[in-house]
Computed example of a mutant assay.
Amino acid sequence: MTYTIPVELTSSPKPKPAHHNQAFGTVFTDHMFILDYDAEQGWHDPRIVPYQPIQLDPAAKVFHYGQTVFEGLKAYLTEDRRILMFRPNKNIERLNLSNRRLSIPDLDEELVLEALKQIVLVDRDWIPSEPGTSLYIRPFVIATEPVLGVAPSLQYKFMIILSVVGSYYAEGINPVGIYVEPKYVRAVVGGVGNAKTAGNYAAGLKAQDEATAKGYSQVLWLDGVHRKYIEEVGSMNVFFKLGDTVVTPALNGSILDGVTRSSVIQLLQHWGIPVEERAISIDEIIEAHRSGTLVEAFGTGTAAVISPIGSLEWQDEKLVIGQGVTGELSSRVYDAITGIQRGILEDPFGWVIELPLADAAKHS
């Protein structure tokens, strides 16, 4: 199906940053995509317009009941000036899974993919070319019906904005210290932990503040029932190399099905490295550290791709992992995924989508 998306180009282009070592999510491009929903018309009026504030009624349900979901993915500029997106279909699938959990109407996934392509092509001159840089893409849905009543909204906006992002690691991928959270809970099975919704992130801010005050970069979340099974690290999925096997928490309904997580599992299997998706207790990790079988640990996510874990603190005991340096597997995974994303390495999985330059010309 062919979708026609009207484009209103800005009359006041912003100055592009002189360099791309920007703080994540602080520099936005010239345009945005908007799609409206109401109960009578369904999703309608797709359009690309100049980046601008949006006007909402103070009673809009998103402010009062948190009915909102979002995604995050990236576009890359290759050395030969091709534009690539990494696994956008996976993000779009997950966006609708989050929609269903939050009682938001499904989006047409083909239309969303076309909108992603077209907004990136409109602002293609913003895509940075330096190693480690990219154009971050943030699709999101908000409930806009101005009614104070606890029920699903009858009106929504779906939007896409773009942000120029520099290398997540200014000086290479270095291991971070992690505080194992003993008090706060991120999510429980049956809740919204497997949806990408704002409340999940707001619920983690207090624990993150306290971990930061203790000198740690992130928290390692334990399950909300037994308080012993590992779930995520910060807002990332987490992996442990125990001996020759890599293990990661199974998707149990409270863990986000990360696109990078899925990519890492496929990559490891492609390399013949054993991977297990199962319940992992903090006690098992402590014992593995004491026995010397805990070789590496790392988080995975869109922003950083790989975030090596150099130490864990649990019940006043600090566990240094891999002598506190980035492990061989962490580096290998990072180099492989970023190489595929930027078109430097072969993509045996069909992960990247190339945006046709012929389409770019019509947006000039």
Results as ranks from 00 to 15, higher is better:
residue 275 V to I: 10
residue 255 I to M: 04
residue 206 K to Q: 15
residue 220 L to N: 08
residue 217 S to Q: 15
residue 300 T to Q: 02
residue 195 A to L: 00
residue 303 A to W: 02
residue 206 K to T: 15
residue 203 A to H: 10
residue 205 L to R: 12
residue 251 L to V: 02
residue 227 R to K: 14
residue 281 S to Y: 11
residue 223 D to N: 11
residue 264 V to N: 05
residue 307 S to H: 01
residue 245 T to A: 08
residue 286 I to G: 10
residue 315 Q to T: 05
residue 285 I to G: 07
residue 302 T to Q: 06
residue 252 N to G: 14
residue 289 H to M: 08
residue 215 G to M: 08
residue 248 T to H: 02
residue 309 I to A: 05
residue 246 V to H: 01
residue 304 A to C: 13
residue 299 G to D: 06
residue 265 I to C: 07
residue 216 Y to G: 04
residue 218 Q to G: 10
residue 197 T to D: 00
residue 299 G to Q: 06
residue 221 W to H: 09
residue 214 K to A: 13
residue 239 F to I: 03
residue 300 T to R: 03
residue 191 G to A: 13
residue 235 S to V: 11
residue 259 V to W: 01
residue 215 G to H: 06
residue 256 L to V: 00
residue 241 K to W: 05
residue 231 E to A: 04
residue 192 V to N: 00
residue 302 T to N: 05
residue 296 E to W: 08
residue 194 N to R: 04
residue 317 E to H: 12
residue 240 F to H: 04
residue 224 G to H: 08
residue 297 A to W: 11
residue 281 S to R: 11
residue 277 E to H: 05
residue 251 L to S: 01
residue 281 S to K: 09
residue 292 G to P: 08
residue 283 D to F: 14
residue 286 I to Q: 14
residue 275 V to F: 05
residue 253 G to S: 06
residue 227 R to F: 10
residue 218 Q to Y: 11
residue 294 L to G: 11
residue 307 S to Y: 02
residue 304 A to P: 06
residue 248 T to R: 01
residue 245 T to N: 02
residue 290 R to Q: 15
residue 310 G to F: 10
residue 229 Y to T: 12
residue 256 L to D: 00
residue 242 L to A: 04
residue 290 R to S: 13
residue 203 A to L: 14
residue 212 T to M: 14
residue 305 V to G: 03
residue 293 T to P: 03
residue 287 E to V: 14
residue 297 A to H: 09
residue 269 Q to V: 13
residue 293 T to C: 11
residue 226 H to E: 15
residue 254 S to N: 14
residue 226 H to K: 13
residue 241 K to V: 11
residue 230 I to G: 08
residue 254 S to I: 05
residue 212 T to H: 14
residue 267 L to N: 09
residue 258 G to C: 07
residue 219 V to G: 03
residue 314 W to K: 11
residue 209 D to C: 13
residue 277 E to S: 12
residue 206 K to A: 13
residue 306 I to L: 07
residue 258 G to N: 07
residue 190 G to R: 10
residue 256 L to E: 00
residue 192 V to G: 00
residue 211 A to H: 08
residue 238 V to K: 03
residue 255 I to Q: 03
residue 201 Y to C: 01
residue 235 S to G: 07
residue 296 E to A: 08
residue 289 H to Q: 10
residue 312 L to R: 05
residue 294 L to V: 09
residue 200 N to C: 00
residue 246 V to I: 08
residue 266 Q to T: 10
residue 255 I to G: 02
residue 199 G to A: 06
residue 245 T to R: 13
residue 200 N to Q: 01
residue 287 E to G: 02
residue 207 A to K: 06
residue 200 N to G: 00
residue 300 T to E: 03
residue 215 G to P: 10
residue 204 G to T: 07
residue 269 Q to Y: 07
residue 302 T to W: 02
residue 197 T to K: 00
residue 224 G to T: 08
residue 275 V to R: 05
residue 236 M to P: 00
residue 253 G to Y: 08
residue 256 L to A: 01
residue 187 A to L: 03
residue 189 V to H: 08
residue 233 V to A: 12
residue 201 Y to K: 00
residue 266 Q to C: 06
residue 193 G to K: 01
residue 271 W to H: 08
residue 268 L to T: 05
residue 257 D to I: 02
residue 315 Q to P: 01
